[in-house]
Amino acid sequence: MSYAYLFKYIIIGDTGVGKSCLLLQFTDKRFQPVHDLTIGVEFGARMITIDNKQIKLQIWDTAGQEAFRSITRSYYRGAAGALLVYDITRRDTFNHLTTWLEDARQHSNSNMVIMLIAKTAANVEDAFINTAKEIYEKIQEGVFDINNEANGIKIGPQSSPTNPNLPTDGRNKNSSSGCC
């Protein structure tokens, strides 16, 4: 699949706030949320369009790795965006936000976009896309060094930053036509 940019996200937040469900909910529209079914995944990807450009989002859940400091550290550094999730029905998950933010600030590069998501809110879609928009703006402003993949941003395989809109191949069902 061709894309102009690839943004790597991580999902952070207390355990049990439903991070992995949020991930699936966003990355795969085919799974419809039903009341008697909760499905989560650790990884997902999805193509979105911003400013007529194909942008691929890769989202990595960091759950289960909190015990290892090296892992948390590396995740933060490798991501362009972080989605900080809390559950509005659980006060403690809100209270821990500051700790998460401090962690993020300490480990991530200073340009990382952090988006706060209240779990029960319906605007999951917006959260992901707005984060991407913000990262995209930062790229436009030249804040992010896009040639440095350690930031969690990759330029598309068949495109250069000057001409990112090459035709997508036929397999790509999700992509809306982003060509100029």
Binding site: Q65, F68, I71, G78, A150
Partner: peptide
């Protein structure tokens, strides 16, 4: 890919 490396490290641990 850094995310792949991280996953490997997580797995080994």
């Amino acid at each position: 890919e850094s995310m792949v490396r991280i996953a490997v490290r997580t797995l080994t641990l």
